[in-house]
Design a protein around this nucleic acid. Structure first.
Lengths: 339, 339
DNA sequence: TCGCGGAATCCAAACGTTTGTATTGACGTT
DNA sequence: AACGTCAATACAAACGTTTGGATTCCGCGA
């Protein structure tokens, strides 16, 4: 069993005091360059790794960065999250830090978890998704001066770094594509109200639908295949069979549900029903018909979030990073209707 | 700024010593039942949360459990991993612990990361995926007496808990379904050699293919859509167009690649080409034709892994948990050939 | 009346860092 | 030669918890 090396061991071999060693390692100008040099040498020779617990206790950084997974992000495998976790972890490890994951099971749980993280010093920083316009979580973090980065903007923009996918643009892309086929009804299936990305999707979609458009209906549902199916079924049941129905789904999973509902209702996507998805899941290209969707460059988004978090931690005085990524249309055919 | 509550605060209001409070909270029989009662009351009234750093420093457990994501698990969103992370996190939090994620970027990185975890006391336990028969990582962990659970058995079975998906059964399911349509060639697309699940898949597939069978070819490739496509393209190019080709893919992503290759090669899945996938990705049901695959009850697997890890940590003397989950066939049509 | 056992509680040290302050010693100034 | 300055380092306290051992106080038996 290899013994753990501490400051004491370095100090022992060099006949110095731990405090000197500590300062040397943190590049305190008060230690003689030569001494510092020696300390660094023996530290790496002995394989010294700072004790995170002791640091945290003392009030220093914990060397940990937290990611809070919001429900139902964890119920399905949205392609971006493992990408984010992986990218973030790699860079954290490069800077001697560690990645901690928290997964709220419901929205109610989140404030408690965040309080624990902040007050319990469970991490030095936090990556927060699913923002709301007036996000209490964000307010709390700002009030407590806790470093964090959001995935999605908030009303507190300018007071924290954020990376956002332009969901208004996504809504526009979907609706424009769908309207080109001249449907009789347009339905927008978005996530529950209050969530920034979902609200933006709706407003972008509505904006694109203004003017000489068919009637538009907004549906706010959780992001699951199941609910996509249920909702689409209700839509189909309420319409005359001859009606040409267009569905703008904020996410491919929902669109898959709509596919299933269409099959059950004797409808056919591409003929009397058109569907637009979102996020470009792995199977969407091969769906029947191939699912039109938008794509969001997961790797780039993950990279930006990571960069924003590290910048926030390493150079606290720097300006807050803030980027918006535009989704790109992936037109595959499911947005079309037979003439 | 809410102040953090510590033992001191409880001790203060009750006019007790912190040590008594500490013992009371840990249900030490030495404290008077009445006192203990009062301590618990004020503790929850004040919202006391133990300081993990202090505990860890004291030499106790770190309160952290690590998950090591092996490449390329993180390059695509295999549905099971977020499920695992989420389930694990919930139970860890219930027991006052925290989840730490490590993501190796390549297999070479793994031993170093594991060494850090073990020797740096970065966690109390580890969940390890992608086992090999004679896994050096597992050997190292056993030698160092570090608690861990594997996803997939090893040659050291009996010396550590493990949860396994029966990939031999999965291979059997795929090949049996494919052979029923009497293809002229059978190809097995599995992950690189050495990985337990991939080897099991191949052996199960081969076993099911013994006897009056068409020629069988094994392909060992990484689990990506890209490589599935490349491999399938090569297979198609090498065969006469009239040949009826069956592809057993260990995972749906690969199968998607095969779909694409078939389209490019002027073949049609369900006519002259049959495909079987694995893991039942969200879009597979809606593929054209619907992808036959096997399904693995992600939630149950995640639950068992979690349970095994917690058992290992909380009751170190208990027998090691060891479970095998059988995949179930999901026959949707892509495994068929036109007569 | 004294001492003893035991229950309940308190005291103090320890974990590995960080950091404010004290100490040392060399050097330059007067 | 005495003194102040400054660089370099040492000392010690603190973070919140756990735990071995000391202390207090009670009732009881001798």
């Amino acid at each position: 069993m290899t013994q753990r090396i501490g400051l004491k061991d370095i100090a022992g071999t060099l006949e110095l005091d731990v405090s000197t060693v500590s300062r040397a390692l943190r590049r305190d100008p008060r230690v003689h360059p030569e001494t510092a040099q020696a300390v660094h040498a023996t530290a790496s020779a002995l394989g010294y790794r700072p004790n995170a617990a002791a640091r945290a206790l003392r009030g220093g950084p914990t060397g940990r960065v937290a990611v809070l997974l919001s429900p139902p992000q964890h119920r399905f495998a949205s392609p971006i999250f493992l990408e984010l976790l992986s990218t973030l972890e790699r860079h954290l490890r490069d800077s001697g830090r560690t990645l901690t994951v928290f997964a709220a099971q419901s929205r109610d749980e989140e404030p408690g978890i965040i309080r624990d993280i902040v007050q319990g010093r469970l991490a030095d920083g936090l990556v927060l998704g699913r923002t709301r316009q007036n996000d209490e979580r964000v307010r709390f973090l700002i009030e407590n001066g806790f470093p964090f980065v959001t995935f999605g903007r908030t009303a507190f923009d300018g007071e924290h770094p954020s990376i956002e996918i332009d969901y208004a643009e996504a809504g526009r892309i979907a609706v424009e594509a769908l309207l080109a086929a001249r449907p009789d009804e347009l339905h927008i299936l978005s996530a529950p109200e209050g969530q920034r990305f979902a609200d933006n999707y709706v407003s972008g979609a509505l904006l694109a639908a203004t003017g000489a458009s068919p009637p538009v209906v907004i549906h706010r549902i959780e992001l699951t295949e199941e609910l996509g199916q249920v909702t689409a079924s209700a839509i189909f049941a309420a319409a005359r069979p001859a009606k040409r129905i267009a569905l703008a789904c904020i996410q491919d999973l929902m669109a898959f549900g709509a596919y299933r509902a269409a099959a059950l209702a004797g409808r056919a996507v591409g003929r009397d029903t058109s569907v637009f998805g979102g996020q470009d899941f792995p199977g969407s290209e091969h769906a029947a018909p191939p699912l039109s969707t938008f794509s969001t460059e997961d790797a780039r988004v993950a990279g930006l979030l990571t960069q924003a978090m590290l910048a926030r931690l390493d150079t606290p005085d720097a300006a807050f990073m803030s980027e918006t990524i535009k989704p790109t249309a992936v037109l595959r055919g499911s947005h079309l209707l037979a003439r």
